[in-house]
Design a binder for these strands. Structure first.
Ligand code: MN
Ligand code: MN
Ligand code: ZN
Ligand code: ZN
Lengths: 143, 143
DNA sequence: ATCTTAATTGAAAATGGTTTTCATTTATAA
DNA sequence: TTATAAATGAAAACCATTTTCAATTAAGAT
């Protein structure tokens, strides 16, 4: 998803397209990694000095509730990380360096159906993450 | 796992068995639900008035790092909930009333192996949670 | 039973991330 | 242009969790 299409999506939903929002979307979109709100805030410092951290939070909330980004629950710390979107997918997180690999096939339908039958729940969402150590961290024996 | 066996496990690891820790373990063990640290603190008020909330946190940390309890990441709020343990299992969480159903079979070995092969990661942990609405919340159309 | 000591506790303060408040600014449509 | 609701940012509030530190205590040694 390009910055433009994200912006277009926001406008379609009746939100204003401010330069702050553009800058935030650009930063997220330019990054290959998952970023915390304050990561994003830092990276904005040259693109839009003076922007408020509040605005970052508000924009992330807006984008998230519009389904335009995804979040990661990293390890025990429970901080939510963010990245540019890409449809339904899941994460493989390195506890050494924090690297996040996305994968898309979760193959959970069978399990989900069984749970629905057994419990009477209606299931609308799931969270699946693997944690471990990436190939680099294994080689370097660091982290 | 009984309060006694949890206590025994702590002692085996060289930790002191204080009345505060006993009280905390009992509260967790007596509850059928997943509890937040402050839930636990509240319930301790008659069993051990005067106990410090800090002690609750420290004891939870101790129990968690010893693998004696589990935690839930509920919905977006990202607060970690706790409960009595019971081996490797996962959660089905109702977004209406907060009810948590445990289930044990995650059938993720195939997926995990494939990810290991494709990415070179070493995987040691996973997080799997389903979210939806429980049978009661569906009937009542409340929540 | 008493002593010793490292572990544990709890009050208070510090932290750190997130949200609220509110006066000011601004994007957008008329 | 003008009108207006939406958005912004500084500051304060919030709230869960952690740190600090002096006092207490569990548990092994005597
Ligand atoms: Mn992702
Ligand atoms: Mn559980
Ligand atoms: Zn790594
Ligand atoms: Zn429910």
């Amino acid at each position: 998803m390009t910055s433009k299409s994200i912006a277009a999506e926001l406008r379609k939903r009746g939100f204003k397209l401010t330069p702050q929002r553009r800058a935030i979307i650009d930063v997220i979109n330019e990054s290959e990694e998952h970023l915390t709100p304050s990561d994003i805030y830092s990276r904005l410092q040259h693109k839009y000095p003076g922007i408020g951290l509040v605005t970052v939070y508000r924009t992330l909330e807006l984008l998230e509730s519009s389904g335009l980004l995804c979040e990661v629950h990293i390890g025990d710390t429970c901080r939510s990380y963010l990245t540019r979107p890409g449809g339904h997918h899941h994460h493989l997180v390195c506890r050494g360096c924090g690297k996040v690999v996305d994968f898309t096939d979760c193959e959970l339908d069978g399990l989900e159906n069984r749970l629905v039958n057994e419990t009477g729940f209606e299931i609308d969402r799931h969270l699946l993450e693997f944690m471990g150590r990436c190939i680099n961290c294994r080689k370097n024996k660091k982290n």
